[in-house]
């Protein structure tokens, strides 16, 4: 597979309606908040998890698209097919001490696992070659405006243990809590390095799959906690040069998310309350913008 030849950056907008996009384990699973601005946060790893899960569903573990970091829920080992593995001398049982062997292992992992090829992975070879830096880098997603987490109390008409039932003398009711955001529009920034792609073999097909995953991943990530989440915009900047033609922050600044006219004085409750604009005029030479969604 030939690696991609261009550097990319992307702005990814997604929203949540009556759900919790990313719980904070430090705060009893409340949606993550930036304490200084009250804007919501979604970590990079939360988004990567969904990309991995989408690729698992889409490719079903097909050759070259296995996922190393798996969630049990999407595990589908029995469907895994045979692989176009390399021809390896079978007598070598020791851990790789020499660099050539370590490289071979790294290359094999990259060729077979989409997530290793895309996001990288750490292997304990003791040699630097065992550490793969992937070409795709994501930053924390932040909500465009401050969000308001609500605590919703819910009841369950059953109890878990007999002891609990006795304590309630047969009433058998428990209360639980859900944390939701009525609405939040989140903005994430991402980077794709052509030079690191060369090293892991991240190809144009892989890139298409990544875009596809970003556009569709929330469609396959429904759950009681998430509410309604949807990808809203994916704006991709392609640099002519592999090293890039413009600073990333200049490109990100060209994408503006503002409140739609007449909605400024009330809380946003859906995507129509926002207006997204890309200043195509401000695009530096050698950079092309595409709205994939």
């Amino acid at each position: 597979m030939t690696a991609i030849a261009h550097r990319y950056e992307f702005v990814y907008l997604f929203d949540v309606t009556n759900g919790n996009p990313n719980g904070d384990p430090d705060a009893g699973n409340l949606p993550r908040l930036d304490p200084e601005t009250n804007c919501g946060l979604v970590t990079d790893v939360a988004l990567k998890r969904k990309i991995r899960n989408f690729v698992t569903l889409d490719k079903d573990g097909g050759p070259g698209f296995a996922i190393y970091m798996q969630e049990k829920a999407v595990l589908n080992n029995q469907h895994k097919r045979a692989y176009d593995a390399l021809e390896i001398k079978p007598e070598d049982k020791k851990l790789p001490k020499d660099e050539a062997k370590a490289r071979e292992i790294t290359a094999w992992m990259c060729a077979n696992f989409f997530d290793v090829r895309t996001f990288g992975a750490v292997m304990t070879t003791g040699i630097n070659a065992g550490q793969v830096r992937g070409p795709v880098q994501l930053a924390f997603a932040t909500s465009v405006e401050p969000v308001l987490p609500l605590e919703i109390s819910i009841t369950r008409m059953a109890v878990t243990t007999e002891k609990e039932a006795e304590a309630q003398s047969g009433d058998n009711r428990t209360m639980g809590r859900k944390h939701i955001l009525p609405y939040g529009l989140y903005r994430a920034h991402g980077f794709v390095s052509a030079k690191l792609a060369e090293r892991t073999g991240f190809s144009d097909d892989d890139l298409q799959l990544l875009w596809n995953a970003l556009i569709n991943m929330f469609e396959h990530d429904r759950s009681a906690a998430r509410g309604e989440m949807a990808a809203r915009k994916l704006i991709v900047f392609e640099h002519e040069n592999a090293m890039g033609n413009a600073p990333a922050h200049v490109l990100f600044d060209a994408v503006k998310v503002q409140r739609a006219e007449g909605t400024e004085d009330r809380p946003a409750r859906n995507f129509a309350d926002y207006r997204v604009s890309v200043d195509a005029e401000a695009m530096p030479k050698g950079v092309s913008v595409r709205e994939l969604l």
Binding site: G61, A66, I67, Y68, M69, Q70, E71, K72, L75, N77, K80, A82, Y83, A85, L86, I88, P90, I105, W108, N112, F113
Partner: peptide
């Protein structure tokens, strides 16, 4: 690599 399959090679 020797077995030629990625089955079972994963971190849960």
């Amino acid at each position: 690599m020797k077995a030629g399959t990625t089955a079972g090679l994963a971190t849960y």
